[in-house]
Design a protein around this nucleic acid. Sequence first.
DNA 1: AGAGGTACCTGGCAGC
DNA 2: TGCTGCCAGGTACCTC
Length: 272
Amino acid sequence: MPELPEVETTLRGIKRELIGQKVMAVIIRQPRLRFPIPSEIEKELKGQVVENIERRAKYLLFKFKTGTLILHLGMSGRLCVLQDPPPPQKHDHVDIHFANHFTLRLTDPRRFGALLFTSSLAEKHPFLINLGPEPLTDQFDGDYLFNRSRGRKLTVKSYLMDGRIVVGVGNIYAAEALFLAKINPQKPAGKITRVKYQTLAKVIKSVLQSAIQQGGTTLKDFKKPSGQPGYFRIALQVYGRAGKPCTRCKSKLTSIRIGQRNTVYCPRCQKN
DNA sequence: AGAGGTACCTGGCAGC
DNA sequence: TGCTGCCAGGTACCTC
């Protein structure tokens, strides 16, 4: 499932082939993603040149002269750049053909992704306007997390996963970061000390950073028609390890639900 | 305004 | 084997 490191790796993988390229055709086979893909997209993009591709949170932004194509991969979405695209399969919902004979193919079995076009500034789009800082920038640090959490009663895990606070921390990284920072995921966000938040911000940055680095190496076959996703592999300490021994103290890892989300933690290492 | 719940969707798996 | 039911995941939007 695309988390921020994977979206970033996808961005790096597609940039080189697509920037400066002219769109020849947009083929929408299945418009019913999370939001219906507007049919005008085809007319809008045809003949236009990709000026740049950027990432904001888990959104990919394809910049054109007249506006921005906004793409979200949802939970199961994947992009491939293909030289000779094989016949589309069941979940290959969109193809964008370029003048250099590359095809950008969107595959999304669960159809939680989104594809839309805005002719105004993308950053002002309702989906993006309220997003918090990028976790890998200097704007995001322990003091920031501390300051914004004062008075907040929700659990620190839900707080971390709120995109208005910080983007790119999904269920997996929230659990991992809280384990590394030795913080109980159920603790109210407003009760966490400044020092703990400083540790937390640090581990969030380092875990995302190393995932991006590993994603970069595993995604080297990005263009292969096989379309192998090349998910980054990082050693997960708690996520998916409920009932197994804690890597630090050997206690049994516990699974609870926080905000309808499965949450694994070590009751001994993450007491406070 | 903050907190929590719901919807969207399908593949994969457990349990019968 | 074939069915049913549950779960995973991100996030916009709804309700209290």
